[in-house]
Amino acid sequence: KNPDEYSLATRFEGVIRRAAEKTGRNTVILVDEYDKPMLQAIDNEELQDEYRSTLKAFYGALKSMDRYIRFALLTGVTKFGKVSVFSDLNNLRDISMLKAYERICGITEEELHSVFKDGIKDLGTANDMTEEETKAKLKELYDGYHFNEDCVDIYNLSGLMITLDS
């Protein structure tokens, strides 16, 4: 443990720097549900302020470590990015509604039916459902992400576990 890394932000900076130095390549960062702490405290202003302060410093590390970062993707369900949590970052680009990125945060229906074909059959068998009934149930439960008009159906299967056995 590095004694200079005394906070979440400085530890995050250290992880980014060491990853780049160890591999000789800039890091790629994925932060899923960046807004979860803020959403969990939505009715508690004091906790919101505390989270906002912690997250501001944490995400500020992205700015200070820019030379070590190749790409960062932050996902969430809110537009907290427009508030003080990201005030230190001036290089954020909201790609949520851009057609070029519509498939990036989920599985398309085509991918679901081809890659997980055997898993869907097994899931149906385990639940006394036909393959078509299983597909319809998956659509009902997990389809619904549409990041722009006329985009493909995007499934978020975070609550579903299907394994790919090799």
Rank of each mutant, 00 (worst) to 15 (best):
K1G: 15
N2F: 10
P3S: 06
E5C: 02
E5W: 10
Y6H: 11
S7W: 00
S7L: 02
L8D: 13
L8Y: 13
T10Y: 07
R11E: 07
G14V: 06
G14Q: 06
V15S: 08
V15A: 12
R17Y: 06
R18F: 05
R18M: 04
R18Y: 04
A19T: 04
A20F: 00
A20R: 02
A20M: 03
G24N: 03
R25D: 15
R25I: 15
N26K: 14
T27I: 12
V28A: 07
V28L: 08
L30S: 08
L30H: 08
D32H: 06
D32G: 07
D35A: 06
K36D: 10
M38I: 14
L39R: 08
A41D: 02
A41M: 04
E45V: 11
E46Y: 10
L47G: 04
Q48L: 14
Q48I: 12
D49R: 15
E50R: 12
R52I: 13
L55M: 13
F58E: 01
Y59M: 10
Y59T: 09
G60A: 12
G60R: 05
A61W: 03
S64P: 03
R67P: 07
Y68S: 04
Y68I: 02
F71W: 12
F71Q: 09
A72H: 13
K79T: 00
K79N: 08
K79Q: 08
F80P: 01
F80W: 15
F80L: 13
K82E: 07
V83D: 10
S84I: 15
V85I: 09
F86Q: 00
N90H: 01
N90I: 04
L92H: 01
D94K: 08
D94Y: 10
K99V: 10
A100V: 12
A100G: 11
Y101I: 00
E102V: 01
E102N: 00
E102S: 00
I104V: 07
C105K: 03
C105G: 02
E109D: 14
E110V: 00
L112S: 02
L112I: 03
H113L: 08
H113W: 04
H113T: 05
H113Q: 09
S114F: 10
V115N: 01
D118P: 00
G119H: 00
I120S: 01
I120Y: 02
I120F: 03
K121S: 09
D122W: 02
D122T: 08
L123P: 00
G124D: 03
T125N: 05
A126N: 03
D128K: 09
D128N: 10
K135C: 09
L138N: 01
K139M: 00
L141Q: 12
Y142M: 05
D143P: 01
D143I: 04
G144P: 04
Y145M: 01
H146F: 11
V152F: 08
V152T: 14
D153A: 09
Y155R: 04
Y155V: 05
G159H: 04
L164R: 15
L164F: 14
L164Q: 15
D165C: 13
D165I: 15
